[in-house]
Amino acid sequence: MIGFEVSEPLCGAFFSYFALWEIKMINRMVSYMITKNYIQDNMKEEYIYAAQMLIEKVYTYIMVMLVGLLSGKCIQTIIFAVTWCCLRKTTGGYHACSTLRCFVGSAIMLLLVVAFAEKLDEAVLFMNILLVLSSVYIFIVGTVNNPYIDYDENELAITKERTRKKIIAVALIIVLLSFLSVPMKKLIYIYWGIVLSALSMMLERIRRKTIVN
Rank of each mutant, 00 (worst) to 15 (best):
V6R: 11
S7F: 08
E8S: 13
P9L: 08
P9V: 06
L10G: 01
C11S: 15
F14R: 06
S16K: 13
Y17A: 03
Y17P: 00
K24V: 12
M25I: 09
N27C: 11
R28G: 15
V30E: 03
I34L: 06
K36F: 02
K36C: 02
I39N: 09
D41C: 12
N42Y: 07
M43F: 04
K44E: 14
E45L: 14
E45V: 13
E45F: 11
E46W: 01
E46I: 10
A50H: 00
A50L: 03
L54T: 10
I55E: 01
K57E: 04
V58L: 03
V58F: 04
T60W: 00
Y61L: 09
Y61S: 07
M63T: 13
M63Q: 09
V64K: 05
M65N: 03
L70A: 10
G72V: 08
K73D: 08
K73V: 03
C74R: 02
I75Q: 05
I75F: 11
A81W: 12
V82C: 11
T83D: 01
W84R: 15
W84K: 15
R88F: 12
R88Q: 11
R88A: 07
T90K: 10
G92H: 02
G93F: 06
H95M: 01
H95Q: 02
A96P: 00
A96D: 01
C97M: 05
S98M: 02
L100M: 10
L100H: 04
R101F: 00
C102K: 00
C102G: 01
C102S: 04
F103I: 00
L110N: 12
V113E: 08
V114K: 04
V114T: 13
L120M: 13
E122H: 14
A123L: 11
V124H: 13
F126K: 08
N128S: 08
N128D: 14
V132F: 11
S134N: 11
S134M: 08
V136S: 07
Y137R: 12
F139V: 02
V141R: 07
G142L: 00
T143F: 01
T143N: 01
V144Y: 03
P147F: 06
P147L: 00
E155V: 04
E161N: 12
E161R: 14
R162D: 02
R164V: 09
R164Q: 12
K165C: 11
I167E: 02
I167F: 10
A169F: 09
V170I: 15
A171E: 05
A171V: 04
I173K: 04
I173W: 04
I173L: 13
I174H: 10
V175Y: 05
V175G: 10
L176G: 12
L180D: 06
L180C: 12
S181T: 05
V182I: 14
P183M: 05
P183K: 12
K185R: 14
L187F: 09
I188T: 07
I188E: 08
I188V: 14
Y189H: 10
Y189S: 03
Y191K: 07
G193V: 09
L196R: 09
S200N: 13
M201K: 11
M201W: 11
M202C: 07
R205P: 00
R207K: 15
K209R: 15
T210M: 13
T210L: 13
I211R: 08
I211K: 13
I211H: 06
V212I: 08
V212C: 04
N213M: 07
N213E: 02
